[in-house]
């Protein structure tokens, strides 16, 4: 009888090859490219997104203007690129607000428990009962327009889903022995929640982030399409679409270019998000509003 001697574990790490569908690879590549373009594109491309050329209004694509010009003779490509920067910036800020506010308050309320938890999650219920776009509308009306306020408004619109994820994760984690052990040592609930529990629930939070990010992008573009986005002159995709829509018949490119760009960006981000959900998070299908 021979004994197969297995090599020490440390020397033989399990083969971890990430097997992802082709669509996810493509989406990831496109999103990385989009981030790069948003970071350095406007400076690299050179044409000023705000420069008007009134003699060249609503022109088709040419050597000078890759995608043609919009109604004030502004270069569509240049506006697309700065619009991308704006979309990603506002959406990322909004996502940060949503995750931070939702997770911190959700965890804190869960840890405190009792009436506080009841009142807080009652409020969360209330926010979720409001139609999302309406809530964002009212928040923009209250906070004013501009990058900061819009990001804040969109963020607060999505914060409730993060609070619910935090509560679910808290419930699940609490039952585990390590929390009991820490409680036995005498740590306070808040300390347990943020020092010990939070690092263990990063998974579901990240998943939720991946699910919510495309919604942030869309909501921002809807807001700026409706005329409630960042400053009037800045080139956001939503605003480009809104402004060009008056000349839709004569110059559909000026509308369709940002519309398609927006659809492509959300599609890629959503593909990554749903893959993340499929892989990381078995539980919360219903929470992803």
């Amino acid at each position: 009888m021979t004994l197969e001697i297995s090599p020490p574990l440390a020397l033989a790490p399990p083969k971890q090859r990430l097997r992802l569908p082709l669509a996810v690879w493509i989406a990831t590549a496109l999103v990385v490219a989009a981030i790069l373009v948003a970071l350095i594109g406007p400076e690299l491309y050179g044409l000023d997104p705000l420069a008007q050329n009134l003699r060249q209004r609503n022109r088709p694509a040419s050597e000078m203007y890759v995608l043609g010009t919009a109604h004030l003779g502004r270069d569509i490509m240049a506006r697309l690129i700065t619009g991308l920067r704006m979309s990603l910036l506002v959406a990322a800020l909004a996502l940060g607000v949503a995750a931070a506010v939702g997770v911190v308050l959700g965890l804190a309320a869960s840890a405190i428990g009792g009436t506080t938890r009841w009142v807080f999650f009652g409020f969360v219920d209330l926010l979720r009962a409001m139609p999302g776009v309406l809530l964002a509308l009212v928040l923009v009306a209250a906070l004013g327009s501009g990058i900061g306020p819009v990001a804040l408004a969109v963020g607060l619109t999505f914060a409730p889903t993060f609070a619910l994820v935090a509560r679910e994760a808290y419930r699940r984690e609490r039952a585990l022995p390590y929390i009991g052990a820490i409680m036995a040592v005498g740590a306070r609930p808040m300390r347990i929640a943020f020092r010990h529990l939070l690092p263990n629930i990063i998974g579901p939070i990240v998943t939720q982030t991946a699910i919510i990010f495309p919604r942030c992008i869309v909501t921002e573009s809807v807001m700026s399409f409706l005329g409630l986005g960042a400053a009037p002159d800045s080139a956001t995709w939503g605003r480009m679409i809104a402004q060009a829509s008056r000349f839709f018949e004569t110059n559909p490119t000026a509308v369709m270019a940002p519309a398609l760009a927006l659809a492509l960006l959300t599609l890629c981000v959503a593909v990554i998000g749903s893959e993340a959900r499929r892989r990381l998070d078995p539980i919360q299908r219903d929470l992803a509003r």
Partner: peptide, 18 residues
């Protein structure tokens, strides 16, 4: 499913109008 997640309704609206 992909359609509704990825395509904002106002973009689809413009495409349909076109």
């Amino acid at each position: 499913n992909v359609w509704s997640v990825a395509f904002p309704t106002f973009c689809v609206g413009f495409a349909f109008i076109l």
